[in-house]
Design a protein around this nucleic acid. Structure first.
Lengths: 186, 186, 186, 186
DNA sequence: GATGAATGAGACTTCATTCAT
DNA sequence: TATGAATGAAGTCTCATTCAT
């Protein structure tokens, strides 16, 4: 594992555990076992380190979402699969979930960075757009639909991870159905 | 305006603008025009100041939600009214929205504080519970339903405030309907 | 002695001994015995501390220059007196001399600060201007004359302090005469 | 251009622009396009690099000073020529002027280095000594005379480069005359 | 109630330099 | 000759908080 990867992995760990606010560069130094200067050799500054990690995770998430999508499936079946793909990615990678959520909600994070990284889940965006065009999904602005659906996934995942709710096949099935009911027409 | 209120108002202003992360006590001192010691006269420490403000805002929000609920209305009509009440409170008080959202998402905020302040919207909780018991709402854990609905409201408000979507009567109507479709049975 | 004055005195001491380059805030902290925060309570930043000290010293120098100037004296006599006043101030305050010289030569020092502090020796400036107007001094731009004369004083003082030359009444007399010969007409 | 010369040229550029204080090795690395290790291959350390550059520039300056000195000229004529030679060298090489001035004024620069490089303008030194011995120049210690004259040149050059004064043939002529008047006897 | 000078730990970052390749 | 990843001490500055007035 390269020093660069050690730094990124440690940062993920710390932000997940403590949040951005409490994740200091000194902590990253101590936990990752690299020298202070090494961080600044690989990253312009703390912000660049965080943004880089965000970008990498967002890319990973984007790949996970469209995994195993059979083109033969109908729209609703694809919707259910994508929803579950995202859900599973988050649940299997709780630290990445924490990071991405914390990052997404941070007011100090530059909008521009978020927009650049939209490309990583362009497939999901195209899927939503096609649903609107085919008259299957509500005629909401695409962004709004994305935020509603992703928000639903996050809500469930967060509650499971915080042990405020217990996961079951039935719950998952119903949660996806609920999400589908909120965006489908009729 | 008392010194105490100046401090609270300034804190709201700053957290809304900069987020918790960047809202330092010295900034509050400078902007509010009070002396450092004065803050610690009225509040135990920074955390206490933030928690106090959170509690006051949450109470305000709780009152706003149940405003003008006519007992004559049927369940769905009440749902629509409550949803719109929350939406309107947030949109009319964008700084309070920012604060409450940032607070809710902060991982360093103690769960215990959040729970204590649930009492401020107990009426809304009771309304959801009755909906489940009457078989009108999906049989999800109450918390999950609350999070889904409140999450939907936040998603719409955030996008409007960030000017990523434009508000219209039709959009609002459809957004509430979408939220209703996701939680109602059938 | 107030904390603020302790900081200023220590800074003067250190810059004189080590130069700006090597005078770190940590060194000032250690030697002055104040806390880090105290420096930033009294001064905006390191630059502000340095600029403040410069301004105070320049003021002191300005006062020293015009000390004991008898209006009865003729122009040349006044010139000799002012020259010697500056010379004596520097020689009696070698640390202040070092600081002012180092500051004056620092390329990173803002011109604006230098200009603001010209007011502290406005009397000397007026004296030079009157000399030009009366046809006693060479018709050089005032700034140039000032720099030539002050430069001559500094050259002598620096060599004495570095023990590259030995002070005597005769040397001083001749040095002033040399400076006078360079600026007077004829 | 060899790597070594690239490093020296870049260092000159940076010191001229930013001063020693702000000219870091990493800046030299970035601007010169060489690797960190390369600098330490050619120079023992940063100090050695600076001292080497100083020595080269001082040598160049020494050569420029005595250029075109016709042995037929009388003492005063030679004085004027040497003065103008130095002046012209500085004005034609403003970055070298900046570097040499900054170096000369840096308190952290070792005296020993300055002395070693005196040899580069030994001709000028000998010229001054002969002037004293012949009773043409004031009977000041040679160092003092050198510092006075070089100081006069620097004062004029600095003001021209900073656009605080405008160069003209007349100004230059008078400036040299002024300098001459300050050191000549009678 | 209110002030603001003072604290010192810890924040982020840059520094000159080394060394295996 | 040349590279550039790695070092870790030291840089400036901000932080939340205290306490004598």
């Amino acid at each position: 594992m390269s020093k660069r990867d050690q730094i990124l992995a440690t940062t993920l760990e710390l932000v997940s555990e403590l949040g951005f606010h409490a994740t200091s560069v000194s902590l990253i130094i101590k936990k990752s076992g690299v020298a202070a200067g090494t961080i600044y050799h690989h990253f312009k500054n703390k912000e660049d380190l965080i943004d880089t990690l965000y970008s990498e995770l967002k890319k990973e998430m984007g790949n996970a979402i469209v995994k195993n999508i059979d083109t033969q499936l109908n729209y609703k079946e694809k919707f259910f699969l994508i929803w579950e793909n995202l859900f599973t990615f988050y649940l299997d990678n709780p630290k990445k979930f924490d990071f991405l959520e914390d990052y997404a909600n941070s007011p100090f994070v530059r909008k521009e960075i978020k927009e650049i990284n939209q490309r990583h889940y362009q497939a999901a965006i195209d899927f939503i757009i096609s649903g609107i065009e085919m008259g299957i999904l509500r005629n909401f602005p695409m962004d709004f639909l994305i935020n509603l659906i992703f928000g639903n996934v996050s809500t469930l995942v967060r509650m499971i991870l915080m042990e405020e709710i217990q996961l079951s096949d039935e719950l998952l099935e119903n949660a996806i159905q609920s999400s589908w009911d909120s965006v489908k027409i009729n």
